[in-house]
């Protein structure tokens, strides 16, 4: 490449075909097929770059969680637990779970937009490990979930949240939460590939998420609900998850809830993971 740079506007910028010919790699210099790990790393790198280029993506993992904690603590604290301080101990693990689960929604929309832009078409014609692009999205998402969780814990600590299990307990709780969110996100990747428009993805996922998160023990103890509702809420995956996170952060071993969380997580991962890969492979 001997051509000067910066000649942009003045001279007509036409690629030189001579250059182009030297640019095409001869057969013996072609790279070997990317390994699964290399493909996954490249796709994850790309998702992280998107966060860099669209920092507003981080609003929902910074601003949104802060607003949620403040709003629910002071709105319901007095009414539900008698004091905001006491309520915060109950609420924080729950509201953290709720926020992170709501954060998973954007995955479906991102994939839907990508599918329309054509990037997915190009990636699908590459000879790479097939699940790499889909998992790549979720790696960056796991980063977002972790950030959201940490932001909320910090806000909670400022407001008077004192987790009994200490740092390790909180980290364990966040670990379970992020792990579950990763598995759960496959629901949205599948949805993002099935539906036509990002608006449709948005409305369907909201319609699923709102009842799923509110009909749980995030905000109130299921014992206070009418019997039938309490039973429904008890079996909800969100309730199991919240109970697990609450247990881990407050130093209570919730074996059954942890087991159910794992079972639900594995179920989402296997079922919707398979569905996503199937949808991604061929339309």
């Amino acid at each position: 490449m001997t051509r000067p740079s910066g000649t942009g506007e003045a001279t007509p910028a036409s690629p030189r075909t001579g250059d182009l010919e030297t640019l095409l790699l001869p057969k013996d210099r072609q790279p070997r097929r990317a390994t699964a790990v290399a493909a996954l790393r490249a796709m994850s790198w790309r998702s992280m770059l998107k966060i860099k280029h669209i920092p507003s993506q981080l609003f929902d993992v910074t601003l949104f969680p802060i607003v949620m904690v403040l709003m629910f603590t002071y709105l319901f604290g007095g009414a539900i637990a008698g004091s905001t301080d006491e309520y915060l101990q109950y609420l924080l693990p729950g509201i953290m779970t709720m926020s992170v689960l709501l954060t998973t929604l954007s995955t479906g929309m991102t994939i839907n937009i990508d599918a329309k832009q054509g990037l997915l078409d190009r990636v699908r014609t590459l000879s790479i490990w097939r699940p790499a692009p889909m998992i790549g999205y979720l790696v960056a998402d796991a980063f977002r979930y972790t950030s959201a969780s940490l932001v909320m814990v910090v806000v909670g600590l400022v407001l008077g949240y004192r987790p009994a299990a200490g740092v390790l307990g909180v980290l364990a709780g966040i670990g379970v939460l992020v792990g579950f969110a990763f598995a759960f996100s496959w629901v949205w990747t599948a949805l993002g590939l099935v539906l036509d428009t990002e608006k449709a993805v948005m409305s369907v996922s909201m319609a699923v998420m709102f009842p799923l998160t509110f009909l749980s023990n995030v905000l109130v103890d299921p014992d206070t609900m009418p019997g039938w509702l309490g039973s429904v809420v008890e079996v909800s995956p969100v309730t199991q998850l919240v109970t697990s996170v609450r247990g881990l952060t407050s130093g209570v071993w919730e074996g059954a809830a942890l087991l159910w969380t794992t079972v639900y997580g594995a179920g989402f991962l296997v079922l919707f993971g398979a569905l996503t890969i199937r949808l991604y492979n061929r339309q």
Binding site: A34, A39, R46, L49, G118, I128
Partner: peptide
């Protein structure tokens, strides 16, 4: 068939790695 949010160089590096 490119990622609109990424720069040109990032797009090519991504596809090169893939």
């Amino acid at each position: 068939s490119l990622d609109e949010d990424l720069t040109a160089a990032e797009n090519l590096v991504l596809l090169g790695r893939l």
